[in-house]
Design a protein around this nucleic acid. Structure first.
Lengths: 336, 336
DNA sequence: ATTTGCGATGTAACCGGTTACATCATCATC
DNA sequence: GATGATGATGTAACCGGTTACATCGCAAAT
């Protein structure tokens, strides 16, 4: 039924199980002749060590948990891609746990990581309430935050400063002469991504004296169709905005599509600014001006950090990156 | 250092380890009073069973391997998304192994799945050579193919028929009156996706007497920029094609971008057909006519099938789906 | 010749659960 | 009162590796 065990290999090689095990962990410790016998037995039986048994002894599995709120969101897709590339080059495996934007499932996922004795956890969900904290404490393994941060700053992480990004986007449009600027963003209650972007936009626009009326500040969800719907409404206004700041590239894509469908020319009649810098977005036409995050790098660095912490290195402070304003074809000077 | 064990819980509850273990697997087998003592001890200590130890006995881990050739490709991103959603609703976890399009790493990934005693493997890479077969045989666990198939038909799977899709795309353009049709596809050596699409295109175009010359049959890689480059070359021809069949939506996006950059109007001067039906593509403008695969469903069904096989059910035959021609804004009747 | 040191190997306990089997108390039955 | 069935619980072996420690052979040192 189940495959050969180390005892089968030992018997076939005419040695003890300890010798076979030693051969695995440190081949130099077994004599050349013995080594060859063991190698032969191993390949004849096609035996590979059972990581489950090994993990039980070592307390290490070589598996890293990745907790993602919404795998269908391209942002997290690219983040996971960066992690996956890093993981395979570092020889560790990722276990994907997705929580469907639910706080309860976040906590459940952390418990699951503990039960499976995953070596470390990379957490990308926004929320970090009391329940999460106890789960993290019980976990007893390193937790790294990717594209999110810990308000109490006890967990290391890497992310971009969304409020700065929001300000940069607003400033870009203001410097192009735009005054009628609408906002389409994610749920403002999200304290990591959407919230600070809203804050950045509002601070900068208020300072310039052109904060838009409430019905031009559309707080929608993250899903792609919401950007489209919001833009349709905005562009049908008697005096529509000349520019729209979007909380993500996906929302911006919806805005671009709405503009195209209504015959509104981008950037001539409408400037659009995204946020995230998705890879695929570089081929959209009109090409999207956006606040680019190094998404893949964030994922990669998160995995590296998790591995480093697992090896006993100390946790560095949270790394705050500044998003980069990538000016492309979707923004231009205001004409009116 | 490491957390409490079942023995700590047993001691605290004043019972034996067997009773605690029984409580976990079948609470009805322990008396009410004992049950309460065990529950109390568990929550006081914050104990959760070690899945590693449990797996060692059961030979089941609750983890499923997903072998993906290229996580950066949005197609596999959407596929993995579908799997992830299904996995979380079925209470199993996915371990992501990516092989960077390398056959060697494919085999290594299969071995890794065996070592970690993953319950089943979902394989999405194209290749299935002799080395893969022995690895699969040694694995001793169910293997499900998603978006690929086994030429020898020993492994169950689910995928769309790419050759039929190729024919459908070609027929669509022919029926619109196009005769100068160029082809931009993936590596023809790929026997699962790219190859059959090439075959379908060529059979249909040859039957209509308008197989394009070799330099209009551009066999490029899957990466997004290749579609752009290929289209730039094609559209600069003295007499350019009036339509382009693309091997994927990502390649088609490059073609759309190239057309936009060269001032070629889609669909008026150029019709473009994609392949895959990526979710995000529904918001591209011009919207893309494409051969849509139910990517998320394929992922979901693959996970369901893997779970079903793990539970001992028999393997059904490979499920071949027919792609759906979704006609949108990137194709129209030929004008010249 | 005896001791010492060292490299190679074997024995057996251990990691943290599960479970077959034994044990024991309780209670209905004859 | 003896018997047996039933339900609750405990004992200990086991899953497949790792590793501390013991053992052994052999060469160098005394």
């Amino acid at each position: 039924m189940s495959g050969p065990t180390i005892r089968d290999v030992a018997a076939r090689a005419g040695v003890s199980v300890a010798t076979v095990s030693r051969f695995l962990s440190d081949p130099d410790k077994v004599a050349r002749a013995t080594r060859e016998k063991v190698e032969a037995a191993m390949s004849e039986l096609g035996w590979r060590p059972n990581m489950t048994a090994r993990s039980l002894v070592h307390g290490r599995t070589g598996l890293y948990g990745v907790i993602v709120p919404d795998v269908a969101n391209p942002f997290f897709g690219e983040l996971a891609t960066g992690m996956s590339l890093a993981a395979s080059s570092l020889g560790v495996q990722l276990v994907l746990l997705h929580t469907d934007l639910s706080e309860e499932l976040d906590v459940a996922a952390l418990h699951l990581c503990r039960q499976h004795r995953l070596d470390a956890v990379i957490y990308t969900s926004g929320s970090l309430g009391p329940a999460h904290r106890t789960a993290v404490a019980q976990l007893g393994r390193p937790v790294v935050l990717a594209a999110t941060y810990d308000p109490e700053d006890t967990l290391p992480g890497i992310l971009v400063d969304s409020q700065v990004g929001g300000k940069m986007g607003a400033r870009h449009l203001l410097s192009l002469g735009h005054r009628r600027i609408a906002l389409v963003g994610g749920p403002a209650a999200d304290p990591i991504a959407a919230g600070p972007r809203w804050t950045g936009w509002r601070l900068e626009l208020a300072a310039a004296g052109c904060l838009p009326p409430p019905h031009w500040q559309l707080e929608v969800g993250w899903k792609q169709q919401y950007g489209y719907q919001a833009a349709i409404a905005l562009l049908r206004e008697p005096i529509p905005p000349t520019a729209i700041l979007c909380g993500s590239d996906v929302l911006a894509l919806g805005v671009l599509a709405a503009a195209a469908d209504l015959g509104v020319s981008v950037p001539h009649d409408l400037s659009v600014v995204g946020f995230d810098g998705l890879n695929l977005a570089s081929l959209w036409r009109p090409s999207l001006t956006t606040l680019s995050q190094p998404i893949g790098d964030i994922g990669r660095e998160a995995v590296r950090l998790a591995v480093s912490l697992t090896e006993g290195h100390a946790a560095p402070p949270t790394r705050w990156l500044t998003p980069e304003l990538v000016v492309r074809g979707s923004t231009s000077a205001a004409v009116r």
